[in-house]
Amino acid sequence: MNINVGTIDRVLRIVAGLVLIALAATGTVGWWGWLGVVPLATGLFRFCPAYTLLGVNTCPMKK
């Protein structure tokens, strides 16, 4: 499993995931807020299966 999620992308995924989970936990949004687990997990593991399928990589090039 290669890393394919860069730093800015990672931070945005973690923040969005935590916000969605918090909104779902407080009852502000419906059940779909629990889908925030997906961006949270991809941000924490720095790997996105969809990026692999699409050939996208937001990590900086290694020299």
Rank of each mutant, 00 (worst) to 15 (best):
W34M: 06
P60D: 07
A16I: 12
G30V: 02
N2D: 13
G30S: 09
Y51E: 01
F47C: 10
T28K: 09
V38A: 15
L35D: 07
T58R: 11
G27W: 15
L53E: 00
L40C: 00
T52G: 13
A41Q: 00
A50K: 05
T7N: 14
G36N: 05
A22I: 00
V37T: 02
T52Q: 15
N2H: 15
G30I: 02
L18Q: 04
G36F: 04
G17P: 05
G6T: 15
Y51F: 13
P39N: 09
W31A: 08
C48L: 06
G6L: 15
V19I: 15
W34G: 07
P39V: 10
A41N: 00
M1T: 15
G33P: 09
G27H: 14
A25S: 08
P49L: 12
V29D: 03
W32L: 12
G30D: 06
G36H: 05
T58H: 10
A50W: 04
V15I: 11
V38E: 10
T26R: 14
N57G: 12
V11D: 07
V56M: 08
C59Y: 10
V5Y: 09
A50G: 03
A22T: 02
L54A: 07
N4T: 02
L44P: 00
A16L: 14
L12E: 01
C48R: 02
M1Q: 13
L54S: 03
L44K: 01
D9I: 09
V11S: 08
A24H: 11
P60M: 05
A50T: 05
L54W: 04
W31M: 08
C48K: 02
T42H: 11
